[in-house]
Amino acid sequence: MQQILVYADSLSWGIIPDTRGRLPFEQRWPGVCEMALRQAGQDIRILENCLNGRRTVWPDPFKDGRDGSEGLAQVMEMHAPLKMVVLMLGNNDFQCTHDNNAWLSAQGTAKLIGIIRQAPIEPGMPVPEILVIAPPAIIRPKGAIAHKFNGAEKRWPGLTEALREVAAEHSCHFMDAGTVTDASKVDGIHLDMDQHNVLGLAVAQVIQPLV
């Protein structure tokens, strides 16, 4: 069995837009992806490490542990050996507590790539492949998260191309989730159940020839 780690935020955790509820594994995109790969005959296990509010490299002033660079090396040790790590982060870098642009957020992902490749895994274990997924574009935030993401839709543009450049520079695989789904119209950030399904199937198609 080959293991794939999804290191991500609430879009992958499966939060139901404008609620504190969570979709079950088989309905959130990592679960959809695993089931599709298994149905295609690949012995794959998807490991989720998805945390609501996780940034790439910035802390949350109100909640501990949201700097994605902290503890990533230990997560790599914990789950090794890994065939692949999927990174889908960035949206929380544009919360109103940060004055970031797309380039800065993408540099955060670049730091995470370096951590993955330098993690102290056991001798003889493989350094995993990395798939960088650009999240769907933030649209005007609504509902309970509107204040937290105030103005994010104006700072987000350019992230997809910045992440594409980072992935190419660091010889990582890349996928633009925005080519298969938009963000939820309910809150402008997250994914609805049908969008999780579409994304999970699309990610499986990208991963299938790589593992």
Rank of each mutant, 00 (worst) to 15 (best):
A8E: 05
L11W: 02
W13S: 13
G14Y: 02
I16E: 06
E26N: 13
W29P: 04
C33L: 11
E34N: 07
A40Y: 01
G41C: 07
L51N: 00
T56Y: 03
T56A: 10
V57I: 14
W58K: 15
P59D: 13
P59G: 04
D60S: 12
K63E: 10
D64Y: 10
G71D: 09
M76L: 12
E77L: 14
P81K: 04
L89C: 05
G90T: 11
D93I: 03
F94P: 07
F94I: 01
D99E: 10
N100C: 08
N100W: 07
N100P: 00
W103F: 02
G108Q: 01
I115G: 02
R117M: 02
Q118D: 08
P120D: 03
I121M: 01
E122V: 08
I133W: 03
I133D: 03
P135S: 08
A137L: 12
H147K: 10
K148W: 13
N150T: 13
R155K: 15
W156F: 15
L159V: 05
L163M: 13
R164I: 00
R164H: 11
E169H: 15
H170N: 15
C172N: 09
V180Y: 10
D182N: 14
A183L: 10
I189R: 04
D192K: 05
Q195I: 05
Q195F: 06
N197H: 11
L199W: 01
A202Q: 09
Q205D: 15
Q208F: 13
P209H: 08
L210D: 09
L210W: 13
